[in-house]
Amino acid sequence: MIARRVVVHGQVQGVFFRASCRRAAQEAGVAGWVRNLPDGTVEAFFEGPEDDVGRMVDWARHGPPHAAVDRIDVTDEPPTGSGGFAITY
């Protein structure tokens, strides 16, 4: 198990990024959370098998159809053992 924290920059709020991310994570079997930040970015935490987390990091590079991702910042994090995937506020 590995974990990655991702901060997504660009036009990523108001385009169903969080809901689409949760759906993609649930389909991939990845645990964690996603939330909007006050500066207009979206932050996500992905935890699970390396290949599955890697797919979610790749997904975050483009997001849902109406998102315009400029860049993402990826940080390795210690796994927390969390289960499920949530939208947090």
Rank of each mutant, 00 (worst) to 15 (best):
I2M: 03
I2Q: 08
A3V: 01
R4A: 02
R5V: 12
R5H: 10
V7P: 09
V8L: 02
H9E: 02
G10D: 00
G10F: 00
Q11D: 10
V12W: 02
V12F: 02
V12H: 01
Q13I: 02
Q13R: 02
G14W: 00
V15M: 08
R18A: 09
A19P: 07
A19R: 15
A19H: 11
S20F: 08
S20D: 09
C21N: 13
C21V: 13
C21E: 12
R22W: 06
R22H: 07
R22D: 08
A24L: 06
A24N: 09
Q26L: 15
G29V: 05
V30N: 05
G32S: 08
G32N: 07
G32D: 05
G32L: 04
W33M: 05
W33S: 11
V34S: 10
V34R: 09
L37R: 15
L37W: 01
D39W: 00
G40R: 01
G40T: 00
T41E: 01
V42K: 03
E43M: 05
E43F: 03
E43L: 04
F45W: 12
F45Q: 06
F46T: 05
F46S: 03
E47K: 07
G48T: 03
E50H: 01
E50A: 11
D52G: 06
D52Y: 04
V53E: 02
V53L: 04
G54D: 05
G54S: 07
R55D: 15
R55G: 12
M56I: 09
M56H: 07
M56Y: 05
D58K: 13
R61Q: 12
H62N: 10
H62M: 06
G63C: 05
P65L: 14
P65G: 09
H66I: 13
H66Q: 15
A67P: 10
A67G: 10
A68R: 15
V69C: 04
D70F: 01
D70W: 02
D70E: 14
R71Q: 09
I72K: 04
I72C: 13
I72Q: 03
V74L: 06
T75W: 11
T75I: 12
D76S: 04
D76N: 02
E77Q: 12
T80I: 08
T80N: 06
G81I: 03
S82V: 14
S82E: 15
G83H: 14
G83T: 15
F85S: 07
I87D: 13
I87L: 13
T88C: 06
Y89G: 13
Y89P: 05
